[in-house]
Computed example of a mutant assay.
Amino acid sequence: MTTETASHYDHLEQMSVHDLLTNINNEDKTVPLAVEKAIPQIESLVTEIVKRMKEGGRLFYIGAGTSGRLGIVDASECPPTYGVPADLVIGLIAGGDVAIRSAVEFAEDDPEQAWSDMAVYQPDSLDTVIGIAASGRTPYVIGGLNQARAAGLLTGCIVCNTGSAVAQAAEYPVEVVVGPEFVTGSTRMKSGTAQKLVLNMVSTSVMIQLGRVKGNKMVDMQLSNIKLKDRAAKMVISETGVDYATAEQLLAKYGSVRAAIENYR
């Protein structure tokens, strides 16, 4: 597997801090280029997700370790950013929530657990499952995808090796091959960065296609702190021409930028 091949660098412990940082950065620069090559695969997956979500489907991410954590981060940011329900995009990690902070030994080795974790949400054929696994061989992810596919769900994946078992289990695989890690086998580095970039692309594109962005603004974002309330007021001012105080009043009355703008006049 490419993710397990030896680093292009050796004797890391003998490098200066400057050389370590420079060499890590040089490796990181290759990641967006690898993601670019996968855009056709990402496009196909996003197109199919949008079709189902417009009919009421949800999006699940399943993964273990770093991959699972990245899925949870992406899922957790959708409600505050786009004002969607907390159960529209759901991140699940092998070992449960405790595994977000601490490694849970052998949790990723159970091929039945992902589908069991999803069962709580009563998945159906409108839903999509994206398996995230740098190696492409995680049993938790493979089993979850196989069972989801058998149940009629749309299945996709984000992996960093070609021809993996995870990719074979998914209808719409996304393979981003970033090459050897700076520290051999440490897939939280380039592979994790690639997965994060793809997740950003998937969720952002989906939310825009679902109408959750107007122009380039997050008009449905949750107004959950002073910074966001200030940003929202400035959006309302930009769209309506009202003064700051009136914008605040509109937001307080209607609860979102979109509603404030639509109800102004």
Rank of each mutant, 00 (worst) to 15 (best):
G179K: 04
A94R: 02
G192P: 12
S224M: 11
K29Q: 14
V178E: 05
E175P: 03
P139T: 10
M221R: 01
D220R: 06
G255H: 07
Y172G: 00
R231M: 08
A148F: 09
D230V: 13
M53H: 03
D109Q: 11
C160W: 04
V104N: 08
Q222V: 15
V206R: 02
I39G: 01
F182V: 15
L33C: 00
G68A: 08
Q113C: 02
G63N: 05
P85M: 07
N25C: 10
Q195F: 03
V174S: 00
R149H: 14
I208E: 01
V50S: 03
D19C: 00
I62H: 03
V219R: 02
K253S: 12
I208T: 07
E171S: 14
G211W: 10
S203W: 05
D87K: 11
V46S: 01
S164P: 02
A233F: 10
R52H: 15
I93T: 09
T138V: 10
A194R: 00
R137T: 15
N216W: 04
P32E: 05
D19R: 14
I93N: 07
V213N: 09
I237N: 03
T22A: 13
F182M: 13
G255I: 11
L251C: 07
K29E: 14
G211E: 11
I24H: 09
G211Q: 10
V206I: 08
A134D: 02
P123E: 10
V129G: 04
D230E: 15
Q222H: 13
Q249A: 15
K229F: 01
S256G: 07
Q122P: 00
P123S: 11
T184N: 04
T81H: 05
V257S: 03
L21E: 00
G95I: 11
G143N: 08
P85N: 06
A194K: 01
T246A: 13
H18P: 00
V17T: 14
T3Y: 07
A232P: 03
P123M: 09
V31R: 01
M221K: 01
D117L: 14
V31F: 04
A114W: 08
V84H: 07
A133D: 09
P111H: 09
E36C: 02
Y244S: 04
Q168G: 12
N200T: 09
Y140N: 05
A38M: 07
E239I: 03
A6T: 12
K253C: 06
I62C: 08
L199A: 02
S16R: 03
E48W: 04
V202I: 15
I130A: 03
E4I: 05
M235F: 14
P111K: 13
H8I: 11
C157P: 00
S203M: 08
W115C: 01
Q249D: 14
Y244N: 05
A86Y: 13
R212N: 02
L33V: 12
A114N: 06
V177C: 07
T128V: 13
G163E: 04
D110E: 07
Y254C: 02
E13R: 06
N161L: 03
T30E: 09
M53W: 03
I237Y: 06
D110S: 10
G185Y: 12
G144L: 08
A99R: 06
T5S: 14
E77W: 09
G96C: 12
E43L: 10
E48I: 06
I226M: 07
V35C: 08
K54E: 15
T184Q: 13
